[in-house]
């Protein structure tokens, strides 16, 4: 329970950064932190006390595996997050090339 609350606090930190900061790189960082918190929350939901990793073994029979389904979903989500980050960085680089600034207030002023 306290782990869930801490995980939500991490999510809210990322959200605060995305909303309040005016630097575009800081906004990308906030987005990344939100993504980390969501990935961690899924894995926390699938954990079982004294569980084992969901990989079968030839020599012994294990009964208490953790839930493999959230892990499979988050595995795709991590790679998608990298693609999204790369796309955001590319757009930010183009914006910087045009306006010579990362500050969204400057960019808004210059966009005449």
């Amino acid at each position: 329970m306290s782990l869930y609350i801490l995980c939500f606090i991490l999510f809210l930190l990322g959200f605060y950064c995305l909303l309040v900061k005016q630097n575009l790189i800081k906004k990308i960082i906030g987005f990344g932190i939100m993504e980390y918190a969501i990935n961690l929350f899924f894995i926390l939901l699938g954990y079982r006390w004294e569980g084992e990793a969901p990989i079968l073994d030839k020599h012994q029979v294990i009964v208490n595996f953790v839930d493999p389904l959230p892990q499979a979903m988050i595995l795709t989500s991590i790679v998608i997050g990298l693609g999204v980050t790369a796309l955001m960085v590319a757009i930010v680089i183009r914006i910087y090339e045009k306006h010579k600034s990362f500050d969204i207030n400057e960019i808004r002023k210059l966009r005449g």
Binding site: Y47, E52, A53, Q71, I74, L75, I78, V79, G81, T85
Partner: peptide, 18 residues
Amino acid sequence: LLRAPDLAITQLVVEILS
């Protein structure tokens, strides 16, 4: 620590690349 070694490997290398 949460018994997800696949994700640990993938997250480590993805973190380096990003």
